[in-house]
Design a protein around this nucleic acid. Sequence first.
DNA 1: GATAGCTAAATTGCGTGCAATCGATCGAGC
DNA 2: GCTCGATCGATTGCACGCAATTTAGCTATC
Lengths: 225, 225
Amino acid sequence: MRAVDRAYSLIREGILAGRHEPGERLGEAELAELTETSRTPVREALRQLEMEGLVEVLPHRGARVAEWTAADLEEIYDLRAMLEAFAAERAASRIEPKDIDRMAELCEFMEQTARAGATQDLDRVAELNAEFHGLVRAAAASTRLVTMLNAVVQLPLVVRTFHRYSPADLERSCAHHRDLVAALRAGDALWAQSVMRSHVLAAKAVLLRATRAQIGTDTSEARNS
Amino acid sequence: MRAVDRAYSLIREGILAGRHEPGERLGEAELAELTETSRTPVREALRQLEMEGLVEVLPHRGARVAEWTAADLEEIYDLRAMLEAFAAERAASRIEPKDIDRMAELCEFMEQTARAGATQDLDRVAELNAEFHGLVRAAAASTRLVTMLNAVVQLPLVVRTFHRYSPADLERSCAHHRDLVAALRAGDALWAQSVMRSHVLAAKAVLLRATRAQIGTDTSEARNS
DNA sequence: GATAGCTAAATTGCGTGCAATCGATCGAGC
DNA sequence: GCTCGATCGATTGCACGCAATTTAGCTATC
């Protein structure tokens, strides 16, 4: 495997997993040591991550992990709602029955894994959810669309979003998934598009509620300190 | 100015202007000479262009200018229709009167410059058109959206698109622009969104008609040779 | 005590050299 | 004559080193 790819993946993963916090400085030498390569591949990886919007590079000043404001988040979710809806619309006329079956199966698994109790595993739910949405995107058969979606989905705050869901939120999310499966099985593009849009906008509402609460505690903490 | 930026701009410009044809091989040494730098900044620039989708780089095999099929073009214009519509929707509630005035002014200029005759200048029309659409995007106030739009607008085939327009097409395009100005002045997001979507889908129809004709001649030429 | 200027350390920008890999040409075997 | 394999040339991948720039710390002056 090429050193550039290794560096790119490792740094990216580190940001998404929250190992590098937003605003954190990313020194080239430091990253070179972390990825066990030299600065050359690290610099190329940083350029890619810059185009992806995950890091910010200032001339002669180095790279930092990008930061997102509440306004950014709202903007991002609106974009995502539109893009995912478009993907669902295209998928409706292209997806194959076996993929719909798999999506239905994923619904089952998610409902089991999301149910409150000892067997609940939100990280597993996130994985299943990723596969579910991945199938829709794959069926949309548009590489550019997938690229764009990655830019608004693969963000630190979005990736770990299920931990902010209440039991009712989770249940609702699963219900949306069921609706989407039905819409796709019917081959109804308008229906699929509408369900997907609602689904993402519901997720936006949950996230904004959660972050507003967080910001609330943050500011109070700031006042206390 | 940094060598990376110079290399990036030059290569990008070269592709958009058609100086590098789709599918053409882009050797690092060759580009280094062209941009008057070394291979290091060229490699970084190529990584950026790869993320943008303008070039394709294969490991150990170098970079090529990306190629677009008719299916890609259709996909790209559908994406663009959605993204530009979304931008117009957001712009409707954010754009300032002076920018709307400027857009109206640009409509005037475009109508004059597009009119058939000795004063017609399609490159100038393209410039004015770019500024017109740029104002909408700027008013949308979403950096991510702008990035995504660039990915589907800044393509060789799209940039020089006005040369494929018939006088009737040009007239219709200008009429759409007038409609959009009216919608924005009314602050009507739904209207603005609808006009913009129609506008882009009309452009798509023109381009597909033109390229289908072109492909027709291309294949006949291929048969003859 | 605050600010402006200066110096030095750290970091980025980029050119260069060498090893690894790919493709093309040539030759051997069927 | 055709296919398969090997060698050579060309190109990419990567590490390293030096120059350029920034920033932090220090000193001197107001």
